[in-house]
Simulated scan of single mutants.
Amino acid sequence: MATSEADGTTPPGLNIHHVDARTLRVLAHPLRIRLLTALREFGPATASKLADRLGESSGATSYHLRQLAAHGFVEDDPELGKGRERWWRAKHAGMAFDRSGDFLRDPDPEVRGAIGVVLHEMATTHAQELNTWLGTMHEWPEEWLRSWDASDFKIRLTPELSLELAEKIHELIESYRGRVPEGTEGSAVVRTHLHVFPRPND
C-alpha cells in the first residue's frame, strides 16, 4: 500500500511508515520492495519461504531482509521465531511519502532515482496483480465474477479538483475497512488500485 502524506489521504488509525529521502533510498531495490509487499500481503515468513515465493535465493532474501530491518521496515516476529529459523514480519500496514514538488524534484539525483524505482515497482506490482486475476478469474465463484471491475475514465479537472477526487475515493474505500471480520465465509481480500494523473491535451 502506498499513500500520500502531502494531501492528507493517509488513513487515520493505520500503522503507516512515513518515508523520508534517506529511508526511500534504502527501499529503492526491486527485491526489497517485493519482500516488503509479500510480508504485508501474506503475513510473517522466513527468508527461505520468501525465497520460494519470489523465486530468489535464500541468501539474497536474508540479506535484503536484514537491510529492511536496519531501517525500520521489517522486524522479527517473536511469536514465530522460536526455532532455528528467523521469522520476519512487516512493521507497518503501508507507507506514505510526500508527493509535493519539493520532494519529487529533490536536487539529489539519488533521491529522484529512488523515487522512480519505488513508483515504477509499485506500478509493476499493480499490473501483475491485475493480470493474475484475469488469468485465474475462471476459478472463482459466480458471485465474485459479478463483483469485480476494471474501468478507466477521462475527466477534465484542475489540480485542486483532481486532489479532491483522490481524497474522496480514499475516504470511500476507508469507509469499508473493518466491516467484514477476518474469516467470514465467502469473503476475500479485495485489492483496489487507484491511479489519478493528467494527460497532455494533444
Rank of each mutant, 00 (worst) to 15 (best):
S151Y: 06
L145M: 13
A90Y: 07
G116W: 09
R112D: 13
E171I: 00
E5K: 11
D77M: 01
N131W: 08
K168E: 00
R25G: 13
V189F: 07
L80H: 07
G101T: 11
A123C: 13
D77Y: 00
E79W: 00
L80D: 06
M122R: 15
L161I: 06
R89N: 08
E5G: 03
S175H: 04
Y176K: 05
D152N: 05
F197G: 14
T10M: 05
S57I: 12
H71L: 06
D76N: 02
R22D: 12
L50F: 15
S100W: 02
E41D: 15
D52Y: 09
P200F: 10
A69N: 07
T46D: 14
P107F: 06
P141E: 04
L165R: 01
D52R: 11
T46P: 04
L104H: 11
W140P: 01
A51C: 10
A60Y: 09
D106M: 03
D76C: 02
T10D: 06
G81N: 08
R84D: 08
A166V: 02
H18Q: 12
L104C: 09
T23I: 05
T132H: 15
R177P: 00
D106S: 14
I33L: 12
Q67I: 10
R53D: 11
P159W: 04
S58T: 14
G94T: 06
I173L: 02
A60T: 13
E121H: 10
T132G: 12
S57C: 09
G8T: 03
E56T: 08
G55N: 14
